[in-house]
Simulated assay, not measured.
Amino acid sequence: MKRTYCLIAAVCMTLVVSACGPDVPPETTVSQKTEQFNELMKRPDLDQAVARYEDLYSKVRDQVTAIVPTLKWQQANPSTAASCGNDSTAVNANLRKDDAEVKGLANWMAKGNLPDAQWEQVVSAVGRIAQDYGFGGGEVVVNRPSNHEVVFRDVFNAELNFGTAVNTTLLLRTGCHLTAEAKTRGIPAPVPTY
């Protein structure tokens, strides 16, 4: 009887410890890596995508300034890069240098708020330009007096965020794209041996 209680206690402790342990992601298989890589091969490489988004960025700033000439744009933060999210984690698994990345373009800011009376006109103009670059209709995130924000997304999961409150801001984060080097190579990078 005492032995049964000890056995039950040991099993319970094992279950408790395993339930509280860290979440370990499943192993990445070669086929997952190849499948995700091949899917990203259908997209422009990161440099091509960034160049296109920079062009979009410039047109949006010019159009907003044409409607509200008092706004003067300046870069607020430099660009950033990061590994891709969950949809493409296998591509970079076990690599020393990422084959695929998401890039945050430099943020732009203009001091001051867009007048509420002009918000609809300005956001419509931004939406038309975004649509020319493959972005869908904007999703309203905030819509209150003197505080507006809308996000546009494209088929590659890039996000163009435009808003106004104390200041007017323009942000863009790309979706996941292969680096130019990886796209030129055309196949997943071999896992380094240590």
Rank of each mutant, 00 (worst) to 15 (best):
E120Y: 15
E120A: 10
E120C: 09
E120D: 14
E120I: 07
Q121V: 09
Q121H: 09
Q121C: 04
V122L: 01
V122E: 09
V123E: 02
V123S: 08
V123I: 03
V123M: 02
S124N: 12
S124H: 11
S124R: 08
S124T: 15
S124M: 14
A125F: 08
A125K: 09
A125Y: 10
A125I: 12
A125H: 01
A125L: 12
A125M: 02
V126E: 10
V126I: 01
V126Y: 05
V126D: 05
G127A: 01
G127H: 00
G127Q: 03
G127D: 03
G127E: 00
G127C: 01
G127T: 04
R128N: 13
R128D: 14
R128H: 10
I129P: 07
I129C: 13
I129M: 11
I129A: 09
I129G: 05
A130R: 00
A130C: 05
A130D: 03
Q131F: 05
Q131I: 11
D132L: 01
D132Y: 00
D132H: 06
Y133K: 06
Y133S: 07
Y133Q: 01
Y133N: 11
G134A: 07
G134D: 03
G134M: 09
G134Q: 03
F135Q: 12
F135K: 01
F135H: 04
G136I: 11
G136N: 14
G137D: 14
G137Q: 15
G137Y: 00
G137W: 04
G137R: 09
G138Q: 10
G138R: 07
G138D: 08
G138E: 12
G138A: 02
G138L: 08
G138M: 08
G138I: 10
G138W: 09
E139C: 05
E139N: 10
V140I: 10
V140T: 13
V140Q: 11
V141Q: 11
V141K: 14
V141N: 10
V142E: 12
V142D: 14
V142W: 03
V142S: 12
V142K: 13
V142Q: 13
N143G: 03
N143Y: 02
N143Q: 13
N143P: 02
N143H: 05
N143E: 14
R144D: 04
R144A: 11
R144E: 12
R144Y: 11
P145W: 05
P145T: 05
P145H: 01
S146V: 04
S146T: 14
S146W: 02
S146C: 04
S146A: 15
N147C: 02
N147S: 05
N147Y: 07
N147K: 15
N147D: 15
N147I: 00
H148K: 14
H148V: 08
H148L: 00
H148C: 02
E149P: 00
E149N: 15
E149K: 15
E149Q: 11
E149Y: 11
E149W: 09
V150H: 07
V150W: 07
V150F: 00
V150E: 06
V150D: 06
V151R: 14
V151I: 08
V151L: 00
V151N: 06
F152I: 10
F152L: 00
F152R: 02
F152Y: 03
F152V: 09
R153I: 02
R153H: 11
R153M: 08
D154V: 04
D154F: 07
